[in-house]
């Protein structure tokens, strides 16, 4: 029995259907990300779970109870907002204790819980500060503590990292995940950043045009994208046009090379895709497909070098590790690239 169930959720603003037939079940303690570009409906789903928007149709069940007709303050949910949203007139401690205070908990209990929360977020000495005296990362940690202090049954995170700078973002996302695991709290995380979604989540929901395109573990979503959109949106992708010679065995011709995907393919012309890390420079043992091309650009990025090569009319990008004794090839030179045909993804519309 799942802990949080969303069934046939729909939301329209006028004639604009921003969420369409959205279904999702979440287990207790699970961390699920809603990933998608802006305007895909992910924030609207989150706001319906929180109670800030009323669904046009559908059910949201938390812990066996339909919450659709409950007001936000009756749902026992914690939420962290994108722009911190700390109360500027309250100290850090009062911010964290706010939920307990409005619930009428005694002062001693509040003080203890606030101290516990401050310790949890690693800011035990900052209780007397006002929000304006904190950095962005600190403010967002306080916002997390404030959301968790009343022990909510679900935690909602609405792009909590997007207002922070890159370094803080990475360290805070690890911290959020660690705290979430420690407390075992069921969490829905909204983001447009696939790296965040992939690195933090138990499962990812990729959304597009108000629908869930795919629901799966980060590994599944990345390696076995269900739709063209998912393949393109999650991770970087090189596309290759191929002619299918034998649909039953998956034999195809890519440019001047023939190879076999060893699975059934539709007949005719198909679009195949390869992640950058599937492609290697030069002929490598164990790789069954060799492509010939010409280097178009070489970008030195530090530990990795991103190389682009033109193969049969399409451009392929791939990375090699930096190495002091193997300088990267020069742009314009001819190269051979190798890959494993069974890794190739078939892109098709749903």
């Amino acid at each position: 029995m799942s802990f949080l169930t969303i069934e046939h959720l729909e939301k329209s603003f006028g004639t604009n259907r921003v969420v369409q037939n959205f279904n999702l079940t979440i287990e207790k303690g699970e961390f699920v990300s809603l990933l998608g570009p802006s305007g895909c409906g992910k924030t609207t789903v989150l706001r319906m779970v929180a109670g800030f928007e009323t669904p046009s149709t559908g059910r949201i069940v938390i812990g066996g109870k339909d919450v659709v007709n409950l007001r936000p303050n009756q749902r026992n949910i914690g939420m962290v907002f994108q722009a911190y949203a700390l109360f500027p007139n309250l100290t850090v401690a009062d911010n964290i204790g706010f939920g307990l205070k409005v619930a009428g908990r005694p002062r001693a209990e509040r003080t203890a819980r606030v101290a516990e929360m401050l310790k949890l977020i690693g800011l035990p000495d900052l209780g007397d500060r006002f929000p304006f005296q904190l950095s962005g990362g600190q403010q967002q940690r306080v916002a997390l503590a404030r959301a968790l202090a009343p022990s909510p049954q679900v935690l909602l995170l609405d792009e909590p990292l997007s207002a922070l700078d890159a370094k803080v973002r990475v360290s805070l996302r690890n911290e959020i995940r660690a705290i979430q695991k420690k407390l075992g709290i069921t969490t829905i995380f909204v983001t447009h950043d696939q790296e965040e979604a992939l690195s933090m989540s138990d499962r990812v929901v990729v959304m597009h045009g108000g629908r869930a395109e795919q629901v799966g573990t980060p590994f599944e979503v990345y390696n076995r994208p269900a739709t063209k959109f998912v393949a393109n949106f999650v991770g970087m992708l090189n596309t290759l046009e191929a002619d299918v010679i034998d649909p039953a065995t998956g034999r195809v011709r890519i440019g001047g090379t023939e190879t076999s995907l060893r699975r059934a393919l539709p007949a005719g012309r198909v679009t195949l895709a390869a992640r950058p890390e599937m492609i290697a420079l030069g002929v490598q043992p164990g790789r069954d497909t060799i492509l010939e091309g010409k280097i178009t650009s070489v970008d030195f990025l530090g530990s990795v070098i991103r190389i682009r090569a033109r193969v049969d009319g399409s451009e392929l990008a791939f990375d090699t590790f930096n190495s002091t004794d193997a300088p990267p090839p020069a742009p314009g030179s001819d190269v051979r690239l190798s890959l494993l045909a069974s890794d190739l993804l078939l892109l098709q519309d749903p």
């Binding site: 800030f52 749902r75 949203a85 309250l90 939920g99």
Partner: peptide
């Protein structure tokens, strides 16, 4: 967001006004 944060933390409209909006 202040109003929403207060609501999701369990505050009523009156509590939001008394504890957050009016002091601000």
């Amino acid at each position: 967001e202040w109003r929403e944060a207060a609501a999701i933390l369990g505050a009523s409209g009156a509590q939001y006004w008394r504890m957050i909006a009016l002091p601000i």
